Amino acid sequence: MLFSQYDKYLDQVSAIEWLRDPAVASMLRQNLYHHDGEKYHLHAYCIMPNHVHVVLTPSPKFIEDSSRSSHAVGEAFDKGSPLSRIMHSLKSYTANEANKLLERSGRFWQPESYDHWIRDEEEMERIVSYICSNPIAANLASKPEDWPWCSCHDRFQLDGDTSGWLPAS
C-alpha cells in the first residue's frame, strides 16, 4: 500500500526527470536488454520520467559464478545478494552514461532501491500489470503499449501481445 502511494506521488511531483530524455531512456533500455540472459532474465520493465520499474530473475549461472569468484567482471566485489550485484552493475553503468548524455556530473540514482521478492505467479501477473499501467496512471499514455519505454511496448512491437511480458532470451 505504501509503495503504490509513493509511486503515485512520484508520477505527480518531480523536479528531476532525466529519464524523460529519449537518449537517456533508450540507453537505459539497451542496458537492461544487454544483460538479459546473462546476469538475469528480464521479465518486464517500465522507464518513467523519474523512476524505473524492473522485474527480473537472477540467472542461475550468474548466481553460481558470483559465489565462486571474488570479483564479477568489471564490477567491484559485493558480498550482498545477486540482486544487489545486478543493481550495482546497472546503476553504475547507466549513471555514468546518462551523465555523459546530459552533460552533467554527480549522483544520478538514489543509493537505495525498492526490492520485492515475487512469491508466486499471481503476484507476478499483478506486478507486471501494475508497472505496465504506470504510464497511464501518470497520464503519459492512453494504453500501456503506447509508452515507448516499457516492455509492454516492446512486446507489442514484437508480436502484438499487450501483456508486457518479455519472451525468454
Rank of each mutant, 00 (worst) to 15 (best):
K39C: 11
F77E: 12
P58Q: 04
H43K: 08
S67I: 03
H43A: 07
M48Q: 08
Y40W: 09
E75T: 08
I47L: 15
H51Q: 06
G80P: 05
G74T: 03
H41I: 08
E75H: 10
V54N: 02
E38N: 10
L56F: 15
V52H: 01
A76M: 10
R85W: 03
V73P: 12
F77P: 13
R68T: 08
V73W: 13
C46S: 12
K79R: 13
M48C: 07
R85E: 02
A76E: 15
D65Y: 08
H53R: 07
H71Q: 14
H71A: 12
H53Y: 13
C46A: 10
C46G: 07
S66P: 00
F62P: 04
Y45I: 03
A76Q: 15
R68G: 00
L83P: 00
P49W: 09
F77C: 11
K79G: 13
S59M: 02
E64K: 13
P82H: 02
V52M: 10
I47P: 06
A76N: 12
S59G: 03
R68Y: 08
S84R: 13
H71M: 12
S70Y: 10
H41M: 07
R85D: 01
Y45G: 02
C46I: 06
V52Y: 01
L83T: 12
S84E: 15
H71C: 07
G74A: 10
D78Y: 07
L83D: 00
A44H: 06
L83R: 03
K79Q: 10
